[in-house]
């Protein structure tokens, strides 16, 4: 259980409208990821759902029940914060048990549930430690434990992994995905990380200035971005955009080609260009190529590539994967 509906929700801080009227429906069991540039209102939206912030107008419903005026605690949601937000003066055991204690469960029951959660999160040996004595990854696990122990209708995550180092981040990402597979609880997850968004989400919501630009599965967004903004935002490295004469040849104001959809050759191709910086990642090579008439383009080549700064190369975009945008930046149909 746990489908969430926002209808006509707006939020103003003073005179500033951070969220213009917004509608969103989240199905039970979905893993929804909010992405968007910094300051676009992801956190605000999450806090509106959580009840930590009051909506200026509109309504929020969970399982069909309007909970717009309901206090955060009564909404049956759990939140995991970027800063972990653990209670520093309580041992892990009490941290995880706190929501149950507030719900008035008896001691034995709390102890049992806390033990069970600690078991699933590999925290059993740390139950008596204070948050201050734990590593970042362990702290985040405690925070997750505190969220799942009360069996909420939905989890809200606000960039939960961004304080962790790269390796740990991958681990935790997998752990959270696994948890979601197992619990099947609705989750809303805010992140800046492309990989997190693409790998974890069943549905991605792309926000810009409080407006939903597009909602869809990761592959939908990747393959059929609705406009220039989404096209540029989803995918890494970023999609190449070409305007002017070259775009006009395709009957569009702008065309977009992802770096991985451009073939590279030393002998022949559609566009001739000069190689700038070359980034060797081992698994891939990113080339920054300046093409007269099209501008600088990024090209992604699988594996290692023996090209050097200043070399002349030829680029050929995959004709089936060229995205076309009109003057208003909206996507046009693919070329037949």
């Amino acid at each position: 259980m746990g489908h969430i509906t926002l209808s006509n929700v707006t939020k103003q801080f003073g005179a500033v409208e951070v969220i213009p009227p917004l509608d969103l429906h989240i199905e039970d069991g979905e893993f929804v990821v909010f992405v968007g540039p910094s300051g676009c209102g992801k956190t605000t939206l999450l806090r509106l759902i959580a009840g930590l912030e009051d909506v200026t107008s509109g309504s929020v419903a969970i399982d069909g029940t309007d909970i717009t005026g309901v206090a955060a605690a009564q909404r049956g949601l759990a939140m995991v914060f970027q800063s972990y937000a653990l209670y520093p003066h309580m041992p892990v055991r009490d941290n995880i048990g706190f929501p149950l204690r507030m719900a008035g469960l008896d001691k034995a029951e709390i102890a049992r549930k806390v033990e069970a959660v600690a078991e699933t999160l590999n925290l059993t040996g740390h139950l008596d430690a204070r948050p201050g004595q734990m590593s970042g990854g362990q702290r985040q696990r405690v925070a997750i434990g505190r969220a799942i122990v009360r069996e909420p209708k939905a989890f809200l995550f606000d960039e939960p992994l961004s304080n962790l180092d790269a390796a740990l981040r991958v681990n935790m990402r997998l752990e959270i995905s696994e948890l979601h597979q197992r619990l099947k609880t609705t989750a809303i997850y805010v992140t800046h990380d492309q990989v997190e968004a693409m790998t974890m989400a069943t549905k991605i919501v792309v926000l810009r200035s409080g407006i939903i630009e597009q909602v869809g599965s990761p592959m939908e967004l990747y393959n059929q971005p609705r406009n220039l903004f989404v096209a540029g935002f989803i995918g890494s490295p970023k999609m190449n955009f070409v305007t002017g004469e070259t775009a006009a040849q395709h009957g569009a104001a702008t065309i977009g080609v992802r770096p991985e959809h451009i073939a590279l050759s030393k002998d022949a191709g559609d566009w001739k260009g000069r190689v700038g910086i070359v980034e060797h990642l081992g698994s891939d090579t990113f080339l920054h190529v300046t093409v007269p008439g099209a501008g600088p383009l990024t090209v992604r080549v699988a594996g290692e590539m023996a090209v050097r700064f200043g070399d002349t190369v030829f680029l050929t975009p995959d004709a089936n994967k060229i995205h076309r945008f009109d003057a208003a930046d909206n996507a046009m149909s693919r070329r037949p």
Partner: peptide, 20 residues
Amino acid sequence: DVLDAGRMDGAGTFHELTLI
């Protein structure tokens, strides 16, 4: 965040003050 977490976990003003 910690106080917000308290509110999410169901602490009213009194518990938020005394326990957190």
